[in-house]
Design a binder for these strands. Structure first.
Lengths: 142, 142
DNA sequence: AAGTAAATGATACAATGTCTCAACTAGCAC
DNA sequence: GTGCTAGTTGAGACATTGTATCATTTACTT
């Protein structure tokens, strides 16, 4: 799958550099979406002199190439590898996120592909609301 | 619906102030999601001395109260009123967004509500991929 | 009408992201 | 392998975006 990264970069006319490897490797290994600052910090472990500007240049590049995805978490933008879709329940009270399995969007993707000529590569399905705790809390404490 | 804003604020124990009215009114009237800076600029037209800090305090408050939603647009975070769901196709090549009608998520919301006890208030369904133009462009130009 | 806690706006500050540019290097040609 | 060249890098200045502080104001309760 790391080969996917290399070929994708090359076929798009970009060079394969230690900095880009480091940034992508950090995202690949992360078990949770990372902020740009976190990617920088972790990336320096892999590539000593990794620059901040390079990280900020590389992350959007990875997104444009379809190798990563930018998410809006409470607290700012975070990046993660883009493999397949992302599905979750987000509580607007406490920010808790509950991952979901099973997705109704897969079927729709094919349909959209035919209808609009889009090449659909992945999707993000987020439900917003209140978790049980926050529902209780909002009734009483506020 | 503006009443919804007022009661929501009151029932959560927050005061109804000119600043908050202005911020919310700006979001309500906007036909497109706005950045915090834009909300400030537009808000000053409605409430002369509106402070920057107040805008940055108010927008997350509106999100927590379920009155607004934060979106990650190319170029940063943007806010919009939260009425129902949001569905679109986003091209990772050029950033173009194509709104969708018809959504498979509504049915799932009810199911999630029962299964997890969440109060589901809205959702965001985004498909990522390449629009027809970008597919062509990627094959040739790059 | 008066009291009070919440909210405001100004400002200073911190964090986040962008731009510039000289130095470097990946990839290609030979 | 050696040299060439355009893409890329990293440092730092800069711009933007978001946060904390605090004296002053004000929405709401009684």
């Amino acid at each position: 799958m790391s080969a996917g990264f290399e070929t994708r970069l090359r076929e798009a006319g970009y060079r394969l550099t230690p900095a880009r490897r480091a940034v992508f490797a950090v995202l690949r290994q992360a078990s949770t979406p990372l902020s740009a600052a976190e990617v920088w910090r972790l990336g320096r472990a892999r590539h000593a002199g990794l620059g901040r500007a390079t990280v900020y240049r590389t992350l959007p590049l990875l997104v444009r190439l379809g190798l990563a995805r930018a998410l809006l978490a409470p607290g700012g933008v975070r990046y993660q590898c883009s493999e397949g879709g992302t599905h979750r329940l987000v509580c607007r009270g406490c920010g808790a996120e509950l991952p979901l399995s099973g997705c109704p969007a897969g079927a729709l993707a094919q349909e959209l592909s035919e209808k609009y000529g889009y090449l659909v590569e992945g999707h993000l399905l987020e439900f917003y609301g209140l978790c049980p705790d926050c529902q209780r809390r909002m009734r009483h404490e506020v």
